[in-house]
Design a protein around this nucleic acid. Structure first.
Lengths: 148, 148
DNA sequence: TATTGTTATACTCTATAACTATA
DNA sequence: TATAGTTATAGAGTATAACAATA
């Protein structure tokens, strides 16, 4: 006969561990992203791909994949889908005919415009929650933490 | 004939998006965790499970799973593996014979001790990187961000 | 020989439906 | 009829090996 503990669970020490809190916050923010981007039908990976291509049109697939930390084989399916939807164009390079130069289509640029708006709204929600000075401070700290 | 852009990729606006920086920092911190916990053979999910059970011995599986945000079916395999390794004990409850009361074994408590040391070292590395006041401020902000 | 993009594949995480044994 | 734990399964995300075309 063993007794069960009453179900009032406490996370205890977990609530003072940066990695744990980082994970929980990341999940919450990504779920919020999912709700905001549902109508646009864009995942975080697709959104960041559009942003990088818009920033530097003509990049090779491998450069974009490396910048985003995606393995080249996994990036193929991601670009296939966005090309199928008419958001991204693959253009064979004249200099190196193995490589594609990636560009946004008109539709891709238009969708990215709407996506940036949705993204700005999320950033505004974060500002409302923690304040702008704290948001800037958080971003600075997160950049440093990436170098652990 | 299409020109490729020179491969100097810039992430552009992504570097000012909290969600993106959160994800990058979380990946970096979890990779660091992976290196530190390699010898202990513990994943973040296993470590947090040990912590919660140690904090409140006798909890049911479903309570621990809910506290950690793991679906009950996925939690079964996690507990199976830790029971197989002799770290966790499943004890049939007398009050409710459907439920298990979870406890750490001696070996589980010992391994958790070593894991807490490894975890404290990671926390110290973070202190070295960003300073203790900033670490406390970060944790507070992350807790608030989880409520987005 | 090396590199770009690709295919095939496998492994981890996560989510849902449906079962069993108890309540 | 409902709940605790379980099984089966399917979908993402991520990783590596090996190939064709081109350099």
């Amino acid at each position: 006969m063993v007794d069960l503990a009453p179900s009032g669970v406490t996370l205890g020490p977990l609530d003072d561990i940066v990695g744990y809190l980082l994970r929980r916050a990341q999940i919450a923010v990504f779920e919020d992203f999912g709700r905001r981007f549902e109508a646009l039908d864009l995942t975080p990976a697709q959104f960041s791909t559009l942003v990088v291509i818009a920033e530097t049109p003509g990049l090779r697939q491998s450069d974009v994949a490396a910048a985003l930390g995606v393995q080249p084989p996994n990036f193929v399916a991601l670009i296939n889908e966005m090309e199928r939807r008419g958001l991204v164009e693959r253009l064979r390079s004249g200099e190196d005919r193995r490589a594609y130069a990636l560009r946004l289509s008109k539709a891709g640029a238009a969708l990215l415009g709407r996506a940036r708006d949705a993204q700005a709204e999320q950033e505004q929600a974060i500002r409302t929650l923690i304040g702008e000075p704290e948001r800037r401070r958080l971003m600075q700290t997160l950049r440093r933490l990436s170098g652990i």
